[in-house]
């Protein structure tokens, strides 16, 4: 056994917490001891510092520490991977824009079809506002309650995938304003939906 640590196990918990306060303030130790089971193992080990008890404490702590490290690793992995992924997708889009007038060897260029009247396409273009994408009746009612501008902003966000900044440039307003309009519109929708749909359902369940 390590002479440094053998000294540690020969004292009571209260004494240790005073003597080694910096050690007990370590975040990993604090969280470790928050679990009552771990606390019990530690006090048992301090009561009778047999090699079996110390070994048990060591193993429990090792597993705990390992888990904590894995979690930390995964969390950073998820975060940095998502940022990287976004950069990669953006770059891809930037590089391979949709080209309308290039002619694929065997077909007519896309640009020839743009000016043509296509019933199907025309229908879609006509009604690209949000209510045409929604089949839920209550939601359509809720959308009708919005002001024209709120509706337009939501359409731009969800149908065309524009960012706050782009919409702000269109209206000559600040992105913060667009953000608040969007937030308010969503809140209105949510409120309407909660009031009409959920409350009614609850009532009908209660009889």
């Amino acid at each position: 056994m390590n002479p440094l640590t053998s000294h540690f196990f020969s004292h009571s918990l209260e004494f240790l917490q005073q003597q080694y306060s910096a050690f007990f303030e370590q975040p990993i130790i604090q969280v470790f001891l928050q679990n009552p089971e771990h606390m019990k193992i530690l006090t048992e080990t301090l009561d009778s510092p047999s090699s079996h008890n110390i070994c048990h404490l060591n193993e429990t702590f090792k597993i705990f520490y390992y888990r904590a490290k894995v979690y930390k690793y995964m969390c950073s992995l998820i975060y940095f991977f998502s940022v990287d992924f976004d950069k990669r997708v953006r770059k891809q889009r930037e590089r391979y824009r949709m080209v309308l007038d290039a002619t694929p060897s065997d077909a007519v260029g896309m640009i020839d079809r743009v000016g043509n009247y296509d019933v199907q396409l025309e229908k879609m273009g006509e009604t690209n506002d949000l209510s045409s994408h929604i089949s839920d009746e209550e939601m359509i009612k809720a959308l009708e309650k919005l002001t024209a501008k709120q509706n337009l902003v939501l359409t731009m966000v969800f149908s065309y995938g524009l960012s706050n900044k782009e919409i702000a440039a269109y209206f000559h307003e600040s992105p913060q304003n667009i953000s608040s309009i969007r937030k308010q519109a969503l809140m209105k929708l949510r409120k309407h939906y909660m009031d009409e749909v959920y409350n009614r359902k609850e009532k009908s369940h209660c009889g």
Binding site: M1, T5, F8, F23, I54, F61, K62, Y65, K69
Partner: peptide, 8 residues
Amino acid sequence: APNFEEFL
């Protein structure tokens, strides 16, 4: 990961 004694 280190065990308890190693960490200490």
